[in-house]
Amino acid sequence: MTHRRKSRQRLAIAATGIAALVAGSFAISQANAAPAQEKTDGIQVLSSEQAGTLATTLTDELGTAAAGTYYDAESEKLVVNVVDDSAVEAVEAAGAEAKIVDHTMAELNDVKAAVDEFAVPGTAWSVDPVSNSVKVTVDSTVTGDELAQVENGVADLAGMATLETVEGEFAPFIEGGDAIYASGARCSLGFNVTVAGVPAFLTAGHCGNISASWSDSSGGGEIGTVTESVFPGSDYALVEYTADVDHPSSVDLYDGTFQEITGAGDAVVGQDVTRSGSTTGVHGGEVTGVDVSVQYPEGTVDGTIQTTVCAEPGDSGGALFAGGTALGLTSGGSGDCSFGGTTFFQPVTDALAAVGATLP
């Protein structure tokens, strides 16, 4: 499949009230990162990509001693929260900055779980490593008794949670990078993958739920069929190719060039990221949360990546990446690319593991 045809037409989509963003079909691999530079205090100067890799490694090694990580873009360093003084040396030896905090990740996860009890549609919540607390966000549809319910719930968490409001409505986006089409809907391919030797691609689950058959042109012949689709809970779908089409390991940058994708990775708070989608093309922003639960009108999706990247209906399923590293599939959010907004992404690593896929 050669998803190098640029369809910029915006289509109205009727699919159970979901406005979805789905972007290009692109495979991924780990980008070659330049060696980190070392500051005089021993802390490494890192790109956001390098910080994401180091964050995953340190979190695994430190176990319960770690209480979250984030990337400080201004000073280009990775900050690792720790609750045990003995972990400081290990963090600093790896070239990151250690920050002693009050609350363990287990305590914060308990607080996050408590939010499940009072969250309403239009609410997102996650552990915020910068403040060492749980961040609860409501969109502008949460008003009256529902808003009071959330406010009271946050207040009951004894200072371990904060509340903020954003404009717009949290909802899935349907349409997409290099576009894919079903009857009455447009989405975007995320990344090309292989399952048991069979070529396939990942996209959003709320797109996969709409139709079993997808094409690379409006009204065109089938190029793939859905073999697995999950939404809500998560938001991913696997579509196996049924036609002999090109499936490059790259992301359309909508300027005649493409970003080669060489691997998949986990996002880190503070990381600079880029999204490609068939409605709005390419836009960048910053990761503001990981392992975020967001309650759409259709149900809650857990484990998402929250960002400041804008998106609009039709970008659903599209690729979120940092350099050559694939990070996520566009799920939903609020706002648009004229005024900005909040967008959530299904982590690619989770989707790959769930469907048993690898990058080509």
Results as ranks from 00 to 15, higher is better:
M1F: 09
S7A: 12
S7T: 10
R10T: 11
R10I: 13
A15E: 15
I18T: 14
F26T: 12
I28C: 13
Q30F: 14
A34N: 09
Q37H: 06
Q37I: 05
K39A: 08
G42W: 04
Q44M: 10
V45H: 08
L54N: 01
T56K: 13
E61F: 09
T64P: 12
A65W: 03
D72I: 09
A73D: 05
E76L: 12
E76R: 15
L78W: 03
V91R: 03
G95H: 06
E97A: 12
K99C: 11
V111H: 08
A113V: 00
A119N: 10
T123P: 13
S126H: 14
P129H: 11
P129T: 08
S133N: 15
K135C: 09
T137L: 15
T143R: 14
A148N: 15
Q149D: 13
D156Q: 06
G159W: 00
G159V: 02
A161R: 01
A161Q: 07
E167G: 14
I174F: 11
G177Y: 01
A179V: 12
A179T: 11
S183G: 13
S183K: 07
N192P: 04
T194S: 15
V195I: 13
A200K: 01
N209T: 11
A212F: 09
S217K: 10
G219H: 02
S229Y: 02
V230S: 15
F231V: 03
P232E: 07
P232K: 00
A237R: 00
L238K: 08
V239C: 01
E240G: 05
D246E: 06
S250M: 05
G256C: 11
G256Y: 07
E260R: 06
T262R: 09
V268Q: 00
D272N: 15
R275S: 11
R275Q: 11
S276F: 05
G277L: 01
S278P: 04
G285T: 11
V294N: 02
G299V: 07
T307P: 14
T308Q: 00
V309D: 02
A311K: 07
E312T: 06
E312D: 11
P313C: 00
D315E: 02
L327M: 03
S331F: 04
G332C: 06
S338E: 15
G341M: 10
F344L: 06
Q346A: 03
V348W: 05
V355F: 12
G356N: 04
T358L: 13
T358R: 08
